[in-house]
């Protein structure tokens, strides 16, 4: 049995589900917006139950169910939230230990919730990481900027927010810095390359944009699929493995001098944003389908 857990209307989830259906698979879809209980290795939804021991492959893209609009707007939101709060840790505990292919195990995904910490692992895997500082101290930031020049500010946790150039001369922003330690990195000029690792396959996309963060809505963004030079393919696969990730979205940047930096490895990449998304979905479906029980 193949298990999918998350929000079925979310694009990457829907794309992988479609690719699995195209392969004749009929996966068990656990919709986070519906009531569900998980006890002693059994998952129960309205009117049905499944033994998790039968799961040979799983694709997990859970959100905080208590924040999903379908839950918060539901008249039954209290019950749905209670179900979700109990079921999610139980399913995560199972997924961390299951003798199945799990894309990705929650404990491996968690490295991305502490980016500077993940950076240590990325560096240990042989990639250059931009010089970084986590601080709530304007003076420390000023010294960092004096040493490194332009500096970007980004969330140090897994919460998504855009990356922006830090203005160390803005007194209001510097005063607010004391309220929350923040991650700063040397700004690395160059071209972005997003590499999706799926098992031992890679799918690379070159991203050209004038914006500091190409993901912002108004950024003029050009995408094209590319081949990775040299041994980068092997290094990206090795990095994903070192982090315990079966699927990863690795953010690289190549400087004008030809040096490569790695910003992070995303354990739940929103690959549908990128060129070549169908290939990534097909590869994930192939991987999951290959682990189905033989008939």
């Amino acid at each position: 049995m193949i298990l999918l857990w998350g929000h079925p209307e979310e694009r990457p989830f829907a794309r992988v589900l479609r690719a699995l259906h195209a392969r004749g698979a009929d996966p068990l879809v656990l919709d986070q917006r519906r009531p569900m209980t998980v006890t002693s290795g059994t998952v129960r939804t309205a009117g049905a139950s499944w033994d998790l021991a039968g799961v040979k492959a799983a694709y997990l893209r859970p959100y905080d169910a208590a924040r999903l609009p379908a839950v918060t707007r539901s008249p039954a939101r209290t019950a749905l939230t209670r179900h979700a709060r109990r079921a999610a840790p139980a399913l995560c505990a199972w997924a961390d230990h299951a003798p199945a292919l799990v894309v990705n195990r929650p404990s491996a995904s968690a490295t991305n919730a502490a980016k500077a910490c993940q950076g240590l692992l990325v560096e240990a895997a042989g990639f250059a990481v931009p010089p970084s500082l986590v601080t709530d101290d304007a003076r420390a930031l000023a010294e960092f900027a004096a040493e490194h020049g332009a500096v970007v500010v980004k969330p140090g946790s897994g919460i998504r927010a855009r990356v922006a150039l830090a203005d160390v001369h803005d007194p209001d922003r510097m005063a607010r810095l004391a309220t929350c330690p923040t991650l700063f990195q040397r700004h690395i000029p160059g071209e972005d390359v997003r590499v999706h690792v799926v098992g031992d396959r890679t799918f690379a996309v070159r991203l050209v944009s004038d914006a500091v963060d190409y993901r912002v809505r108004d950024a003029a963004l050009k995408q094209s699929t590319v081949e990775l030079p040299g041994d980068l393919t092997e290094r990206c696969v090795a990095l994903a493995r070192a982090l315990g990730l079966v699927v990863a979205g690795i953010d690289l940047r190549m400087t004008p001098e030809g040096d490569w930096f790695c910003f992070e490895a995303n354990p739940a990449p929103a690959f549908t944003f990128f060129a070549g998304a169908d290939q990534v979905a097909e590869a994930i479906a192939d991987l999951l389908h290959a682990h189905r029980p033989s008939s």
């Binding site: 970084s132 601080t135 709530d136």
Partner: peptide, 20 residues
Amino acid sequence: TLAGPGTRCDPADLPAATLG
């Protein structure tokens, strides 16, 4: 009690890290 300023954590020099 974690309140700045005073926090400086450079991943490349953790022995010198400070918490405010």
